[in-house]
Computed example of a mutant assay.
Amino acid sequence: MAPAGTGDPRRPPPAPAARVLAPAGRISAGAVAAVLAVGLVAPEAWRRWPVAVFLIGLVAGLPHGAVDHLVPGWFRRRPRSAAGRRGVVPLGYAAAAVAVPAAALAAPACVFGVFLAVSALHFGYGDARFCALRDGPAGPARRTAHALAHGAVTTVLPLVRWPEQVRPVVRQLAPGLDWLLAAPARPAAAALAGAAVTAGCVTALRGGRHRQAAELLLLTALFTVVPPLVAFGAYFGAWHSVRHIARLVLADPANIPALRAGRTAAVLRRFGRQAAVPTVVALAALAALTALPHAFPADGRTAARGVALLAALTFPHLVVVAHLDRCEGSAAPGRRGPPAAVRRTARSGRPVTARPPGRRTE
């Protein structure tokens, strides 16, 4: 336990944090529940417009990575160096925009397989981190079980449950991975996904985290009942993106005074301004990719283009999120806060740009 008064002043106190985390959790769960309800009551509705819903979810989810270029500066020890290095992340995204398609042309099955694996880890550990902020920190075993279950539901379950709907996209992006949808591989994948979900629910219930178990079952029902493009569009745009944005607005030190004052709407407007230009650039890239007439065969062409864009954006985004996870972890309960000068800056209400050291409190 850290002594009184040594908590991290960069992190908003529980009540202001709850003003962001609790609504984000309700919005994501409510949106997914609504999509699932339509799938149960009127399944034909989603079967008519799967690509449209997928694209809407893709567009709605793009802003959650649009402030990646700002994240490293929030945790710099020397604020003056942040502006000079802010261009590193955009350069990384530009390099990925070239490197990922080039690698996919050379080894499509390998690149797509890696993309599935890293996406599962990204989605899983991202949700585990959100739940740790909202519900309290969890031990490594419980966090790993949560992440593996969540990642299995969002990436493995669609391959197992909807092979014929997923096949056109897989054939265009990675023809060599068709074996994932074949009968011999699907039972093994289904068993692994089922074991992961069971372990995630059991560990959550044993820890008294009934809401997390219910959310995991809700996502499992979504990807089981609703066609994969619709399910992923709803998940990406209304669940993953919303929860990651909640983490971002809490991590930005310039938002702390507004959060303490209860001005959550002002914080969200500020995030919107920060994310506007990169989001427009990503949308332009999607439009340009869609305009290429012969980039993909006609069958499943639009969905494949959306997945290709996600792959190009995902790899650099993973690096930034890993940095965010590490910096958030160094400010976890039980660790010392930043130096006294930084604490005075935080109390004054001015933005804090120093990163708390990771030294443990004895």
Rank of each mutant, 00 (worst) to 15 (best):
Val226Ser: 02
Arg80Cys: 06
Pro158Ile: 09
Gly139Ala: 07
Gly25Glu: 00
Gly5Thr: 10
Leu133Val: 08
Arg247Met: 11
Gly57Gln: 12
Ala199Ile: 02
Ala24Asn: 08
Gly61Ile: 01
His64Ile: 07
Gly25Arg: 00
Arg326Gln: 13
Ala52Gln: 14
Cys201Ile: 14
Arg206Met: 09
Ala275Thr: 03
Asp299Phe: 07
Ala18Thr: 07
Ala231Gly: 04
Val242Ser: 15
Arg142Lys: 09
Gly113Thr: 08
Val169Cys: 00
Phe123Ile: 14
Leu181Met: 10
Pro158Gly: 10
Gln165Pro: 00
Ala234Arg: 05
Ala285Leu: 14
Ala251Glu: 02
Pro13Leu: 13
Arg85Gly: 14
Pro12Ser: 13
Val111Thr: 04
Gly5Pro: 11
Leu62Val: 04
Pro9Gly: 08
Ala195Arg: 11
Ala238Asp: 01
His150Phe: 13
Trp179His: 02
Leu105Ala: 15
Ile56Asp: 01
Gly306Ala: 13
Thr154Ser: 14
Val197Ala: 02
Pro187Trp: 04
Ala254Cys: 10
Ala103Asp: 04
Phe223Ala: 05
Val342Pro: 00
Leu318Gly: 10
Arg360Gly: 08
Val35Ile: 13
Ala332Pro: 03
Ala195Lys: 10
Pro184Thr: 02
Trp49Val: 14
Ala109Lys: 11
Gly61Gln: 07
Glu44Val: 13
Pro175Tyr: 12
Val160Cys: 12
Phe123Asp: 09
Val20Met: 13
Gln172Ile: 01
Gly334Phe: 12
Arg336Pro: 01
